[in-house]
């Protein structure tokens, strides 16, 4: 009996080993490996003609954060400004997607079942459509000879085409359009779960609509808001495709700067250091998210305990 048990146990161990070995090996080499070497690169000396020298060098970060003032690597506040501008742009994208999606999620959550499924299908469908195709559509719309200007001129509202493409506004429109499906689903998931009786209770107890919204609805849908915001913020922050197609040379974001360091300026260590800035911003955000979620769970847990005690 115990022998049979023993072989069973060892066979299970073998299965587990077999299941985990290939993915572990693959990810250790091709995922953790590249990340580690990128971190190392950000502390190495850039070679004179591209390439890298394997010597410790802290001025890659110094150039961004302000302690490099030597002959070759100058500190220039412009890098940090670009970083901050990118954070601001990503935050604006998040805010606009949130404002766009929140009422829509409410609208969908109150539909009859069949219609609801159709509308959710329609809203999530763009996720399956190639990003480059969706961006191309906005190039066509916003160009000086594009649809938007033609329409306005056709209506006689303007005489000359407006300069929309190659501005910050164009980049924000493009970002929101591309990433808005990511915002919808988490928001919808938390609004769908909203307990309507709590809203009624709040109104019965004399709260007006604004109070009900800010004191009841908003806190209860917070996980969806925060989740959606993070999923939109992360790809917006380092994005260089949208700025390069809709922002042109005028709107340079941290993503464009990184791309230039790797593909034209060929200063890879500096590019890696810029990449680490993006990484740091994402990590800070995630830690914040984890804090909110665990607090949420603790509160939910507390509520459950209270219910059990009351029962």
């Amino acid at each position: 009996m115990s022998k049979a048990h023993h072989t069973l146990e060892s066979r299970r161990k073998l299965t587990l080993f077999g299941l985990l070995l290939p993915p572990s090996a693959f990810l250790a080499v091709f995922f953790l490996g590249p990340l580690a070497i990128m971190i190392v690169y950000s502390w190495l000396t850039p070679g004179l003609y591209g390439g890298v020298e394997w010597k410790f060098f802290h001025l890659n970060y110094g150039r961004i954060l302000g302690w490099a003032d030597t002959k070759y690597e100058r500190f220039d506040p412009v890098y940090f400004e670009i970083f901050l501008r990118s954070v601001k742009l990503a935050a604006t994208t998040v805010l606009l997607s949130l404002i766009l999606c929140y009422p829509v999620a409410f609208w969908v959550s109150r539909m009859p079942e069949k219609r609801k499924n159709l509308v959710i299908f329609l809203i999530t469908l763009p996720f399956f459509i190639s990003l480059i195709v969706r961006l191309f559509a906005w190039v066509l719309i916003l160009r000086p000879t594009g649809f938007f200007n033609q329409a306005l001129m056709g209506l006689g509202l303007i005489d000359e085409p407006l300069e929309i493409i190659f501005t910050g506004t164009a980049v924000i429109i493009g970002m929101v359009y591309v990433f808005v499906p990511f915002m919808f689903l988490p928001l919808y998931a938390s609004i769908e779960k909203l307990d309507l009786s709590l809203i009624e209770a709040s109104q019965d107890l004399g709260a007006n609509r604004l109070q009900t919204f800010f004191r009841v609805i908003l806190p209860m849908t917070l996980p969806g808001i925060v989740g959606g915001s993070i999923i939109v913020f992360i790809p917006s922050l380092g994005n260089f495709i949208v700025p390069s197609l809709l922002g042109g040379a005028k709107v340079v974001m941290i993503g464009n700067l990184i791309e230039q360091q790797f593909l034209s300026a060929r200063n890879w260590p500096f590019g890696a250091a810029l990449g680490m800035m993006v990484m740091a911003a994402v990590l800070v955000l995630l830690l914040y998210y984890i804090r909110i979620v665990t607090r949420e769970e603790r509160q939910a847990g507390g509520l459950k305990v209270a219910e059990e005690v009351a029962a």
């Binding site: 091709f30 995922f31 490996g33 590249p34 990340l35 070497i37 990128m38 690169y41 993070i230 992360i234 790809p235 922050l237 380092g238 994005n239 260089f240 993503g255 990184i258 791309e259 790797f262 890879w268 590019g271 890696a272 990449g275 993006v278 990484m279 994402v282 995630l286």
Partner: peptide, 17 residues
């Protein structure tokens, strides 16, 4: 981890590697 990593980071890390 790969899901929450901005694409550009994974792109440059793989390129360097």
């Amino acid at each position: 981890m790969p899901m929450i990593m901005p694409d550009i980071i994974l792109g440059i890390a793989l390129l360097i590697f």
